[in-house]
């Protein structure tokens, strides 16, 4: 499957990565190469094959419902880019 410039821009928006024109052109080339590598998959006959979730087909353990975490806001927010009154600050969220 070939990838177009338009695809690159769409997927860059989905992934929230700013891409300038020069980068988009390079990405079109690189992603095109990667996707043709990946397209070998289409040759494989996978009829009836269950997709693999965990190599050992292990199942999920469940944790007892207990509060084990205390307040560590000071420590966690010491490494935050911008906080005020205990809140993380971001440019205005418009719904």
């Amino acid at each position: 499957m070939a990838i177009s410039r338009d695809d690159i821009e769409k997927v860059a928006l989905l992934a929230r990565i700013q891409v300038d024109d020069a980068q988009a052109a390079a990405l079109e080339q690189d992603l095109g190469n990667i996707l043709s590598l990946v397209d070998q998959l289409q040759a494989a006959d996978t009829t009836g094959v269950e997709p693999m979730a965990h190599p050992l087909d292990a199942v999920q353990r469940l944790r007892p419902d207990e509060v084990t975490e205390g307040n560590q806001r000071e420590r966690f927010q010491a490494i935050a880019p911008a906080t005020e009154d205990g809140l993380y600050l971001v440019p205005k969220v418009i719904e």
């Binding site: 944790r63 419902d65 207990e66 509060v67 084990t68 975490e69 307040n71 560590q72 806001r73 966690f76 927010q77 009154d85 205990g86 809140l87 993380y88």
Partner: peptide, 23 residues
Amino acid sequence: TKSKIFSGSSTAFGAEPNTQASA
């Protein structure tokens, strides 16, 4: 529930902001 679905943080309502947010 007492704790969150994927962590041991409390789910109690009305706490000070981000005091019930674990790593």
